[in-house]
Structure formats: C-alpha cells, structure tokens
Write a protein that binds this DNA or RNA. Structure first.
Lengths: 126, 126
DNA sequence: GCAAGTATGAGAATCATTCCCGATAACCGG
DNA sequence: CCGGTTATCGGGAATGATTCTCATACTTGC
C-alpha cells in the first residue's frame, strides 16, 4: 500500500552514516519537514528489521539502533566508539568458530551476536 | 558498611542457574521473604557489574540480565534458548579474530561482544 | 468517484530503570 | 552501651523508550 511514509523512513535511514535509534530518526524526519509520527517510525523500522533489510542491535543503555547495511548477507560490525564510523565485516572465521563451539557442546540451530567496538584511526589521535 | 542486603543479593544471584533480570531477582528475593526494594537490587547489581563480579548482557527485548560467572576471566556464553542453560566459553580464537579484524581496519582499544544462542542437546528433542 | 481496507499520527499505556527523600541501620569515639 | 554521623534502604514518583489504541486520512480495485 501507500509506501510514502515507508519510503521516507527508508530513505532517511539510508542517509545515516551509522547506527541510529528510532528516536533520532524520528527527530531527523521532523526536522526535514516530514509530518510523521513516532509510532510509524517504530512500525517501519521493525518491519524493515524483520524483512532483514536493516540490522538492529542494542546499545549498552538498551536502546535499539538501526542501520541499513550495504549487503543483505550475514556480517558483523566494527564500530568506532567515538565517531560512530562503521565497518561491515564479513568474515567466515567467526561463523566457523561459533559453529564449532556450539557443536562441541551439542547445541543446534545456533545464532550468534558479534559486535566489535574500538577507536578508529581518525579518532585515535595518538 | 551494611553488607546485609548486598550479601543477600549476591547470594541470590549466585544461586541462579542462568542469566536473570533485575526484576526476576527482585521477585525471588521477595518470595524468599527478604524485604528488599527494587532500587536496591538495581543498585547492587550495577555495583557488582562495575566491579566485574557479574556479567551483564541485554536480551533482544532490551532488558538487562545478570549472571555471576565461574571465572573472573574474560569469556563468552553459549546459551540454550529453550532452557536457559549456559556454558561459559573461554576460547582465545575469537579474541584473536576480533583483534585481527580491528587491526586490519586501524581500530584501537578494542572491546567486543560475542554471544551464542542455540538449542542444547537436552532440549533439542530431535 | 466509491467502498473497503490499510497506514498514519496523537496521545495514552507499558515496562524497565533511575531518581528522590525520609527512614533506618551500621560504625565510631567516648 | 550511647549519641552523632553517614551510608544504605525502601517505596513511590519520575524518566525514557517502546507499544497500543483508535479515530482519521490515504490507496487501491472497480
């Protein structure tokens, strides 16, 4: 159906250089003049997440943050704790590791979460 | 000072077979007859977490869950999504992987989050 | 253009977590 | 053991993110 709002939200997300919370995206949309409701932002973000079109993760404070990733394939993130710059990492090594560990303990249908944060070269003014 | 409440909370946490939320722990303490406040549970849980005596992580719903781990050393968890059984995994391989990835992209002071969930052999009634 | 159905937005409702503050209990010097 | 001082408690209010509700606005098929 009407994909007007959905497109606006999807586009706004696309424009983000890093992970953003629903609240942030909502604020940006409002600033950009979009008359959109917070509930709508949440709805679409969730829909996009379920459709696997965006990645979701939780900050240490428990806030959900979203990001439209370059690839639809499974990957992980390397995020700068200072500027938020995000590098998408697709490396089979971790997947294999997770599978091996799970296997060693008899676990099945394994799913994993792997996120790495650090200070990027631009921010680490050493 | 008064370590009465602190001990009760620490002990209750010790008795948990898996990760528990502050709310759950609070409920258990009340059931056990402890006249403790929710705020106190949060306070001590946070203190214990900062002291590195308990591990904290976030559920997909954003709720913080705590666990007193066997070792104080750095490790990860393999959790059964059905029964909650938790296996502590200390495997240098992931650490090396994370360091390597970070290094390749010029990131420093790296910290990582790695959690694996699956169905344990007891629950996977296949 | 019209009916029927979905998306939308505003604000209320939820829920975990934190804040506030008067009450309480531990510690200490005497 | 006593009073004074101070950190901890507990309960309820305050906060903040997320979800729900529902009347209204837009879409689509016809």
């Amino acid at each position: 159906m009407s994909t007007h709002r959905r497109q606006a939200i999807s586009a706004a997300l696309q424009a983000q250089p890093t992970f953003v919370s629903a609240q942030q995206l909502y604020a940006e949309l409002r600033n950009a003049g979009e008359r959109v409701g917070l509930a709508t932002v949440y709805r679409h973000l969730q829909a996009l997440a379920e459709a696997g079109q965006v990645d979701v993760l939780r900050t240490d404070e428990g806030e959900a943050v979203y990001r439209r990733c370059a690839t639809g394939r499974h990957h992980h993130h390397l995020v700068c704790r200072s500027c938020g710059r995000t590098v998408e990492v697709a490396d089979r090594a971790v997947e294999r590791w997770a599978d091996r560990i799970a296997d060693e303990h008899g676990f099945r249908d394994v799913r994993h979460t792997v996120e790495v944060v650090g200070t990027c070269s631009a921010c680490g003014a050493s």
